[in-house]
């Protein structure tokens, strides 16, 4: 009953505060759209300059996905390279091609080297070795990098916005004195925490449904698993964020101090959420990922969305998230002791 009262109040506050409502619902969609536009674009077409390259080689090069510009001397090609009108140039020295790369962008470097390698293979005479037959266990050749880190992004947004909004609204409860007023009523401390979890939980479910629907149906993100599993992960991740946010808010005295938790709590989690490869990190650093809720959330998300796995495969991740939430909830109830001794 009292938990219900708290849920109704949180909802009414949400409905009155249109801007926060928009932040929670529209901001993730906006950012995900931008990310998908950026990473789903066509693969980069390198601009390569040629200086005195034999016609045969130029023809071969033209078959690759590059745009070619011809220069009369290496000096003018170098000038073009310096002004970044081209990414590399090829000149002919002693019967062999010599390549100079602009070199400041590793992804462009790779694209150019790949093109040159393919050209070299195509032009070398004789059998080109054994062509392996390639099949994919998960994913596909058409899978884009957006498909790969999209799941982690969904998890991140669920976590980040709930952490911030719940943390700040609990902080406001403290700084405006309403928490003090609240504890002068017969509400139990656990009921306050439960009310917050239920109120925000209900809201984040809607947020999760909206984000998931938008990513899968509008942005066409790869989705091989069941939607219900995806929602379950998002919900648990949000509750972890909520309970962590409200707990940490008791160590902040203003909204600004709450913001200071972002580089401490949110940013490190991004690095361990699978946006970057954890296996290349130092061993002791990898261990850190084990204490980051987002690591488990993103792992489960990828298992469902990319690998199409079912509930039994993500149950461990879910259990860990639930354990995080329970620990933070207990800590919340305990810190509320500061405001009322019973």
């Amino acid at each position: 009953m009292r938990v219900c009262a708290l849920v109704v109040r949180i909802w009414r506050q949400f409905l009155h505060d249109k801007r926060t409502l928009m932040l929670m619902l529209v901001a993730p969609i906006l950012i995900l759209t931008l990310v998908s536009l950026v990473f789903n674009g066509n693969t980069y077409k390198p601009k390569i300059g040629t200086v005195d390259v034999p016609a045969m080689v130029t023809q071969r090069l033209a078959q690759e996905d590059v745009s070619l510009v011809s220069y009369s001397s290496t000096n003018s090609a170098l000038e073009a390279l310096k002004t970044q009108t081209i990414d590399a140039y090829i000149s002919w020295q002693d019967g062999r091609p010599a390549v100079v790369l602009e070199g400041s962008d590793p992804s462009k470097n790779k694209a150019i080297l790949l093109d040159l390698q393919q050209m070299a293979e195509a032009s070398s005479p004789g059998p080109t070795g054994i062509q392996p037959k390639i099949t994919y266990l998960y994913g596909s050749a058409k899978m884009s990098s957006f498909d790969n880190f999209g799941p982690a992004l969904i998890g991140f947004f669920a976590f980040f916005f709930v952490f911030l909004v719940a943390g700040i609204s609990f902080l406001k409860e403290r700084t405006t004195g309403t928490l003090q007023r609240l504890v002068a009523t017969p509400i139990r401390r656990w009921e306050i925490v439960a009310g917050y979890v239920a109120g925000f939980g209900l809201f984040t479910t809607i947020q999760a449904i909206l984000i998931a629907w938008f990513c899968v149906d509008i942005l066409g993100m790869m989705m091989n698993g069941r939607l219900i599993n995806l929602l379950l992960i998002t919900l648990l991740l949000s509750i972890t964020a909520l309970t962590l946010g409200t707990f940490l808010s008791s160590f902040a005295n203003s909204e600004f101090q709450m913001m200071q938790f972002i580089p401490l709590v949110i940013v490190p989690q991004v690095f361990f959420s699978g946006l970057f490869n954890i296996d290349t990190m130092a061993v002791w650093l990898r261990w850190l990922s084990k204490i980051m809720p987002l690591y488990y959330g993103a792992d489960a998300m990828r298992n469902v969305m990319i690998r199409g796995k079912g509930f039994t495969d993500i149950v461990m991740d879910l259990a860990v998230l639930l354990a995080f939430s329970l620990v933070f909830m207990v800590l919340n109830v305990l810190t509320l002791r500061k405001y009322r001794h019973v």
Binding site: Q13, H16, T176, G177, T178, Q180, R181, L182, A184
Partner: peptide
């Protein structure tokens, strides 16, 4: 309480 503990929104 001495301060008005109300939900302003």
């Amino acid at each position: 309480a001495q301060s008005d503990a109300l939900y302003a929104e």
